[in-house]
Design a protein around this nucleic acid. Sequence first.
DNA 1: CTGAAAGCGCTTACAG
DNA 2: CTGAAAGCGCTTACAG
Lengths: 357, 357
Amino acid sequence: MKGKPTSFDIAYQAGVSQSTVSRALRGSPLVSAETRKRIQAIAKQLNYKVDKNASNLRRQHSVTLALLLFEDATSDAALVNPFFLSMLGSITRACAREGYDLLISFQQLSDDWHADFQDSHKADGLILLGYGDFEVARHKLEKLVEQGTQFVYWGAVEPGQPGISVGCDNVQGGRAVTEHLLSLGRRRIAFVGDASPHCPEFFDRYRGHCEALRAAGVPVVPALQVEAMDSSEKLGHAAVRMLQERGQKFDAVFAASDLLAIGAMRALEESGLRVPEDVAVVGFDDIPVAAFASPPLTTVQQDTRAAGEVLVQRLLQLIRGEPSESTMLPARVIVRRSCGQPGDTDATRMAQLRRAS
Amino acid sequence: MKGKPTSFDIAYQAGVSQSTVSRALRGSPLVSAETRKRIQAIAKQLNYKVDKNASNLRRQHSVTLALLLFEDATSDAALVNPFFLSMLGSITRACAREGYDLLISFQQLSDDWHADFQDSHKADGLILLGYGDFEVARHKLEKLVEQGTQFVYWGAVEPGQPGISVGCDNVQGGRAVTEHLLSLGRRRIAFVGDASPHCPEFFDRYRGHCEALRAAGVPVVPALQVEAMDSSEKLGHAAVRMLQERGQKFDAVFAASDLLAIGAMRALEESGLRVPEDVAVVGFDDIPVAAFASPPLTTVQQDTRAAGEVLVQRLLQLIRGEPSESTMLPARVIVRRSCGQPGDTDATRMAQLRRAS
DNA sequence: CTGAAAGCGCTTACAG
DNA sequence: CTGAAAGCGCTTACAG
């Protein structure tokens, strides 16, 4: 046998036409069971695999999805957002289950958003993770819609957004974790995270936060909110310093992400403040290290497993021309020690590790 | 414009033949600069992208690599080994730089090892991460070699192994971290991890460990070695219990992976033993949570960034028919508090976080 | 149920 | 430097 066998080789051995081989292997009902069986046996024996490129070319689709992870050009080249990473598993598996292959690519925020993948027929649709400044991203997303690109993205879920998005219920998450802080007696809660349309997810978390405060009759103090557009330990650290420079007193910090929260805790520690005794700290995301922070971080868990599933489902609906819609997933407060209430540390830590590994 | 433009559309607009369009866009020197320029401009204006499937079919290769992550069938479906995950970034980037696309797929250890990707022309070569029991994997790897599959894998680097592997210098890493423990006065060091050809990487770490002991004139006590074939917190926990049941005294634990080490620390804690005062603990891998463990875990860092680069380079050499060879990367001890020597916690923690995010 | 034939959109010898 | 033509390996109307 020279080179890879083709459907003609199978046909020859089976004594049928190449068309019949193709039909049999694609599961067409137009082939008799007996013929199909014979063909399959020979294909298996010859280790024949349908040539994807030929099949794709002919059928005009690739049965492949592309996962585009956007990252800041300024950040170190080896970084991958741990939150997105945790979605990777479920996305991959959902694709596999649906018979789709998954291309993965890291993109610079500044680049053209590669409709390239679809234009070149490398992928039938795109999953976008991480868009940076949403006001900038919005235009790019709108262009994608215009071009007829099939895509879904993880982010805020709000009316008027371009395309289909999947995200967690940030308002509810922000509300729930703030209520928890309030129930522990905290009243001056700082919020670390941008509260503007540039960061709709952080903004929604802030909205939920404010809702909870108002419902409890606690005043919303603008000076207790500090901008942080990105999610990093450094920005969280800087935010606490900023609050202190403002001379604001606070007994809790709600950081819009775990990375911000961890940086905030470090800054507090350095100022001689104890977490949670002096200042309670909560984050958002429940990234793997959250359970290992000192103290272990109370946070809001987004269901990354469901997230991956839903992203793939929505994208496939788009590709198949079925009705599809943006979807919000529930958020869940995970209580650990950083908020001042001894949580079930051991159990959550085990669960975390399991998710991490 | 109906549907995606083809090279014929470009040719028509440029007033040249389709062949010339193809040549111009592929950068053939057979096209005049002026013609090329005109064609490129029109292609750009029409948002033309070469159809990958057609191009691949014609050229008989896919300019795509497949990353296969193997996992235990028994483990929860959402798990991804954090160590492999940390390699993903550099693999992706190395592929992008070389102009290759990257398919990613999770495979069950028990499945056929999908030469499928290559047979179907989905990918030109494979990168395998995680093989489980190497004695079992060896046969599969040998079969891949027989079939002429182009692949590289992460693992031990030893003579007589099938195919091309890339791994860290486990012997050196095991030696170095043991020397460190010895330098801190520890003498009865337990080793948690399988020391057999089933786990060549763990075995090499054990070898390095024994070398260091012998060089220091410290006896190697077989009863201080506990099997753990896999890397999980649970097995690390069980290993410490086993040591205690054996009635062995030990003042340090060298776990063959961070996950094992973290489980071991928890078991020690539960027995009322203090880490590092009573028992020093060190791990291997330097996964993101290692810096956040309590106490922060001393471990051996594998250079995941270089790992990804080298894996891709070696695979491309194979694909291009160039000489290639298995490669060993250096390992580096990261000192944190779990070994009893106050490490530069803050600096390493920051570095860790940066790698984690 | 099966076969002959067209065609998916390129790339690349071949001829000029 | 350019064009006409073959062909990569399939899938799928079309005809039987």
